[in-house]
């Protein structure tokens, strides 16, 4: 298995008057899990369809290991993909679904047995796929993506419909695939699903990339220099800190968020002013908070802010 990067360069696509992709550009490189995140309608699925040659781009190109997908003789040996787990014939068994796919790649029954075992579907393999739960269909789709033992894997919202056990399994599984130097691209509209799994995230909105960075950098950027202060005397603490030049916002009943001042200096100021405090915690943003910071302007459909009248 040789390395293969999924390259997306300057993709543009319009459907009628709707611009789905507006210069989408990023790479998913070998050896890491790349999260592909954005609100619904941001262009994630369209990008994946163009990568697979299902839809044509108006401009730009997508390549797998340097080659356009449609030029690959046995494409599933280069890129395994799962777009829609329900794209099955309901009367065909899971095993037979994998069998025709394997045959289309010049592979045999032995490989079908291997992947069906790998995803934990061996017991259900002979049953009609129409009777599978969504979680089982996701597993079958992942088995299909692995058939050709490809150096690159691409999954569209694979956590949808999975039970907690399945989610834990899939996270570990995708990490292991990246550990084998495969390029793994996973889309999600929920950043929290990617926390602890993705090494790198490509955040998209309205058909283009908003952020393309490592997870660590993204969180560091969103965390800023905020320090949470727990105190029994928030009013006095706030007054003392503001007087010393900090920006203070109340975080909850007895907690303050403090910006523009390091934790050590905060402790000095409070101690000097005789203000009691019990905790100083530099705030670390979650991946989800970082995401909301980024996509605030990019969400196409959003509920109007709710006015609460007392």
């Amino acid at each position: 298995m040789s390395d293969a990067t999924i390259e997306v360069a300057g993709l543009r696509k319009r459907y009628g008057s709707t611009t789905a992709l507006d210069g989408m550009t990023f790479d998913a490189v070998p050896g890491r899990v790349t999260g592909f995140v954005g609100p619904n309608g941001a262009g994630k699925s369209t990008t994946m369809r163009i990568i697979l040659g299902l839809h044509s781009a108006d401009a730009g190109q997508a390549r797998i290991g340097g080659r356009p997908y449609r030029s690959l003789r046995y494409p599933l040996r280069s890129l395994g993909a799962l777009l829609d787990a329900s794209a099955l014939h309901p009367a065909r068994s899971g095993r037979n679904h994998l069998l025709w796919l394997a045959q289309s790649q010049g592979l045999g029954r032995r490989r079908v047995d291997e992947v069906i075992e790998l995803v934990g579907l061996a017991a259900a393999g002979r049953r009609a796929a129409g009777g599978y739960s969504l979680g089982m269909r996701q597993r079958l789709g992942i088995a299909a993506a692995l058939l050709g033992d490809p150096p690159a894997i691409m999954l569209d919202e694979p956590f949808n419909g999975m039970d907690p056990e399945g989610i834990v399994w899939l996270r570990g599984f995708l990490r292991a695939l990246a550990g084998e130097r495969r390029a793994v691209l996973v889309s999600s509209h929920l950043m929290s699903e990617l926390q602890g799994m993705a090494d790198h995230v490509v955040v998209v909105g309205r058909g283009r990339v908003i952020a393309d960075s490592s997870v660590a950098d993204l969180i560091a950027a969103a965390s800023g220099d905020r320090v949470l202060v727990r105190t029994g005397a928030p009013r006095e603490a706030a007054a003392a800190l503001v007087a010393a030049g900090a920006e203070v916002t109340p975080a909850s009943q007895n907690r303050l968020g403090v910006r523009a001042m390091a934790a050590e200096r905060i402790a000095e100021v409070l101690a000097a002013g005789g203000v009691p405090f019990s905790e100083l915690a530099p705030h670390r943003a979650t991946l989800e908070e970082a995401y909301f910071d980024l996509t605030g302007d990019a969400v196409e459909y959003r509920a109007a802010p709710t006015e609460v009248t007392p």
Partner: peptide, 8 residues
């Protein structure tokens, strides 16, 4: 889509 992805 599965068919065309497997056999472009």
């Amino acid at each position: 889509r599965v068919t065309v992805a497997a056999m472009p």
